[in-house]
Nucleic acid binder design. Sequence first.
DNA 1: TTAGTTCGTACTTATATACAAAGAGCTG
DNA 2: CAGCTCTTTGTATATAAGTACGAACTAA
Length: 182
Amino acid sequence: MVEIVNIVASGSLGIELDLENVCHDIGSIGEYDPDKYPGMYLRFEEDAPLITLYRTGKYIVTGADSKEEAYSFRNRFLSLLAERGMIESPDDEWFRIQNLVCTAELRESLNLNALAIGLGLEKTEYEPEQFPGLIYRPAGADSVVLLFASGRVVITGSPDLDAAEQTFAALQDDVTDLLAVD
DNA sequence: TTAGTTCGTACTTATATACAAAGAGCTG
DNA sequence: CAGCTCTTTGTATATAAGTACGAACTAA
């Protein structure tokens, strides 16, 4: 079972903005400190996804845990700007999911040292003193996997759920084969 | 004895480490 | 022009820092 825990998506308003004005207009849900970072932050509610808006009109939505949530916050964001007359219409054909962070679980605890060799040293990185997880970059896949001794797994870098699920399915096969050999 | 202060231990919380992606802007 | 800043999120380690509480001590 692969579960999405975070989504990064981006889009473009197609127009340039004066972030100072925008932030002033939307009030307390906005935060803009150009000395600290060039983007303006917008969060509708506490713990809700964060939207980062740039001078160029490009923006990022981070923190959603489903595609629906990401799109819904994009819509709220565009509607808000449209209501204030900052944009013509609440549409954005450039909006797209860029990255998914998923978690999954292999049913048993793992020997990461053995796994690094089994999966291929050229595709893995495991330095327990630096980080407790094993980093695995499956050949041909567009996802990167972090494996932990507990059997828990993090799949990141995937453009969509199918890619993450395929990566996990392939990983499961590889791991069960390796365990069978032992 | 009791209130108040201070010290030490214990536990909690935070941070660093690593990964991916987008964006703007600054540094070297 | 490369690489860093920042943000999100799970995973798990060590370590740092910060809080809390009990024990011990002093003064009234």
